[in-house]
Each structure stands twice: as structure tokens, then as C-alpha cells.
Design a protein around this nucleic acid. Sequence first.
RNA 1: CGCGGGGUGGAGCAGCUCGGUAGCUCGCCAGGCUCAUAACCUGGAGGUCGUAGGUUCAAAUCCUUCCCCCGCUACCA
Length: 601
Amino acid sequence: MSKKVLILVAWPYANGPRHIGHVAGFGVPSDIYARYMRMAGYNVLMVSGTDEHGTPIAMQAEKDDISPQVLVDKYNKQIVEDLYNLGLSYDLFTRTTTGNHTKVVQNVFLQLYKNGYIYKDTMSQAKEAGTGKTLPDRYIEGTCPKCGYFPARGDQCDNCGSQLDPTDLINPVSKNTGKSPIFADSVHFFLDLPALKEALTKWLKSRKNWRPNVLKYSLNIINDTKPRAITRDIDWGITIPLPNWRDESNKKLYVWFDAVVGYLSACIEWARRKGDAELWRQYWNDKNCQSDYFMGKDNIAFHSQIWPSQLLGYRGLGSKGGQTGAYGDLNLPTEVVSSEFLTMEGKKFTSSQGIVIYVKDILAKYPVDALRYYIAAAGPENNDTDFTWESFVQRNNSELVGSWGNLVNRTLNMVYKRFSQISQIDMSQLERNDTKLLSKIESVFPEVANLIESHKQQAGLSKIMKLVNDTNAYITATEPFKQDDFRARQILWVCIQAIYNINTMLAPYIPHSAQKVLLSLGVTNQKIPMPQIETVIDLDNSNRQYPIITGDYKLNDMAIKWQMTYLRGNSKIAKPEPIFQKIDPKIIEQELNGLINKKII
RNA sequence: CGCGGGGUGGAGCAGCUCGGUAGCUCGCCAGGCUCAUAACCUGGAGGUCGUAGGUUCAAAUCCUUCCCCCGCUACCA
């Protein structure tokens, strides 16, 4: 049995379509990693889904005068389509409003409760005057008691940086209505983070290979750990699974408490759909299975603190002791891979002000791999990075089309025009130039593998692109178009092998084009796996259907493997058509005008 | 002293953990080639690596001072 890896990807919030900043943060990087890991022979399980509970969705549904379920159905569908169109190869992309998820979340809650890590307490809470609806801290504004700044928010003053409680504000008002909120006591359940602090700290300190900033940040915030309310006064969410609370329609579990449990519940749903309801245990209960989480940097706290705390408490490993529940000893995260942020022509993405490029819009106009390549090459892996249309066009035209696409195209043209097929040659007769290039390519396989496994995908990609340049230089140096047939066959054979193997390494980054390259090389017994959308029936509610992303990524061994491989046989090739298209630089101005018209820049 | 990240040729970045000729992509200049999507290849100009000091035979890299940018406990990823 090959080594198992769980790839757990942040759950997009279903309150609107996703923009390219979202997918640059968690989507494309996690898919590159998953595709590589499968090619390298790991047994991968990758899951995610839409996150569909919480106040913002409830409020927006009310504004749109529809039920929250109708709202999330709409955006779930759209997000599923976006991620599918990007070719993200989830084994299961589901959602948090399923019967399965609800049950798993409630089981986790009950075990935590039983072990003593969840307790009841009273807190003062702001409510909307008139409707009596709960008002989240950030929807309250007023004058800061420390510096007099207005408008300071209920949680923090932007001017002096003070941490605030809504009750501290002078003349607090609701951002929604402008009226003063009403403060009232409310009973809630709390996750006892202090009781888990020691176990959590110990665990964090054993995470030697994490990126230093993630580790530092996590250890830092742990110092002033407080119990955290995990229920809310809201009617949209998962029911509290306790007597006297089940029927309380206005108290539900806090959205973050349920969202992170999705990582587990989605694996359970995957196993149930596979027909072996216990299959997920191979990933979650096996200590040797690693679990890698992908997210934007704003989510670090939930993955390095809240979720591990829930898991530790579930297993009874905090200061209050306890026992593990029916799910057994669930693995804590091995890696928390966080991306930085993407900005848009120098501004932060903000859908409310239209500073945004939606995934569906960009994919409607430009090839999917142009976007994937851009994100892979210039995305926010280590620093915040700025998306500009100019650099998008330039990267596509110069690197993807000019270097790589042209290499494929010029080689195939020479082969087609002169021999109309890829001819076999005797490798032992190759010249030094030839073998040098081939062994160089072979040596890059393990180098890129190391880089991707240590989450340095950009460095990996630039190593591959260096090989593209080397091969272009090789053609210039050997001048196959001036050689006799014997030598020309040799050179072109070497070029074909170079292209085939470089294409293998590019496959995790730009899978759609990798498939096209395979076809134009006449390779039909290998494929690049792609996800599918399927409509399924809720396993716990036969009246309900929803779309999922899933797929067969092994393809009965037709999937391509991460290793230097020589193409054999004399495959005929068709008249080559360019695989990569240039993007007209005029679109830079057009797209920018679009933004100017919206008065954004 | 709240915490953290960053300041490297015109632009965007790598290098800094483990000090030793400053590297990549784009742009610019010159040349080459013509198989290819005016593509590709070669060479060149251009940097006192934010500032001031220290350690060292040697510092972008280690230590200290100061300056400037940017995030930060909110489901805006």
C-alpha cells in the first residue's frame, strides 16, 4: 500500500461567486500539490466543499428576501462550476448543509461536551433594536472610548488599534439600521480552549517543519487564549444536539465550529459514497497518514488553533482528560500551508466595491491554463502579490506561448513536415549534446518533486521552465533543419522526449494543456485525469439532491507517472495546431477601462 | 517598546537558515537564426543588496541603531 495523504482544502463561503484571489489562495496550489502527489504514487484523498452557514449568509438571504437555503443552493452550484472549470481534482467537493455533515458535527460536539471541553455560560450580546436579531460585533460602530475616533467597530478601533467590546463603545449603533443595539444576556456554549492550551502548545512545538511565520503566529495567539463561544443566536445553522436545546430554533452552532469539522465529514461522506463506510479511517486513524491543509493566511488561526483543539478535546487529551469518541484517534494537521493575498491592480479585492475578477468571468474569456499558469508562477505563495492584466498577458504570451508552446509547435512542425511520424532511433548512437539534455531533464524530476513536496511550487515551476529554455537552445545549437535525415531524426527524437517529459512535469500545473500536448504527440494510452460534476442524492435525506465534484484520478493506470519516461514506437502525428494562444495586449486597456468605468482606479 | 512580514539593477522577485565572485523573469541595447504562434538563441548595459554602526581575512547573508512600506485576531481568501 502506497503512502497515504489527506489533502484538505479551505471551504469557500457560499455567499457569492468566488474571485481569482480565492482560488489563487487555496484552489490552484492545493490542486497542483494533489496532482503531483498522485503522479508520484501517493494514495491521495482530497476533499472540500462550500461553507454554507453563518450570519453573513443569513443576513444576505434576508436582504434578498429568500431563504438561506435557496441562497446557498445558488452559490454552491456556481462555485462547484467554477472549481470544476479550473480542473481542481477533488475526490469529493461537497457542502455543509448535508445530512451527513450535520450528524458528524453533532457527534464531535457531543464528545467534546462529554469530555468536559464544552460548557455553558452567559454573555452579554447586542441585538438589533426592533427585530431582536443578533448583531455581530463587526456590525456595530461607535466612538472609540480610548481615542475618540469614529467610526470604531465593535471588535476593534481602526484608528488606535485597541481591542474593544461592543459595550465599550460610546453611542454604539447598528451599521444596518443606524439604531442603538440592545444589550441582553444570552446563554451560550463555549469551547474551553484554556483547558486544551497545554496540549495544543505541546503539539505546536513539535511542528518543526512548518513555515516559521505560521508557527510563530500560532504560538503567539495561543498566549491569550480565552474560551470561545461556539453557539450563536441565529436560526440558520446546525442544531445543538442536546435535550432542551434541540428545539431552540434561535440558537445554532457557530459556523466555524461546523466548517472545520467538514474536513472529517467530507471524508466520511466520500467513504459512504464509495460503498465502504469505514474507508475514511485509513486516512484519519492511521498515524502514518499525513494531512495537509491549504488556505489563505486569514484562516491560519482556525487550522492551527481551533480545529486542533477540537480534535484534542475530542480525543480527551486536554487537562480535563476524557476519552476518544467513535471516530477514534483522529489525526491532527501535519502541515498548515497558508498562502498570502492577491491584490488587484494595487488594491485589495473587495466584491462590494467591484474590485474583483470572478473566476467565471476570467474563464469565459481566457484559457483556464493561462490563469492556472499565472497563479502558479506569480501567485501569492510567499508574499502578497499584485494581479495586473499586463503581467497576466505578458506571462501567458511570453512564457506559456512563446517559450513552451512554441517549443512544442516548432518541434512537431519539423517532425510532421519531414517525417510525418516520430521515428525511433538507436539511443546508443546519440551525441554528447543529446544525452546531456536528456540527463539534465531526468535530474530535474527529483528536484521539482522536492520543491513541490516542501510547498515551493513557484521554484519548481521555474526549474521546469528553465528546461524549456534549454531545449529551445538545444534546437538552435543543433539546427535539425540543416541536418541530413539520420541526424535530424536523432535531434527531433531528443526534442520529442524532452517535450514529453517536460510536459509530465508541467501536468500538475497546467493539466488541460498537458492533455493536449499528449494528444499531439500521438499518445493515446495515457491521460491527464480531470474532475467531473455529478448530481447526487443526500445520503441522509432522499428528497434532496446536490452537485458534487469528484473523479477517477487513477484511470486504470492510464494516469501519467512522475518519472523520466521514453516514448517508444513510431507514432504518426497529425498536422500540428498551436496548443497555446496568445492574448491580445489590447485587452489590458479594455479590462482596465472596465475598472475605470466602475471608478475603481 | 503590541505582533508579524517586507525594503536587492527600470518593473516583479530569488538568494539570507549553513557568511566567500549578486541570480531569475520581463523591459532596454547589439548580434545571430529562420524549423516555429514577428517566435527562438547569444552577448551587453544597468545594482555601494533601505540607513548608520559592529563582528570577521571576508556580510545581501550574523549582531545593534534608525528610517520607510504592508498585514494583523472580522466569513472580505
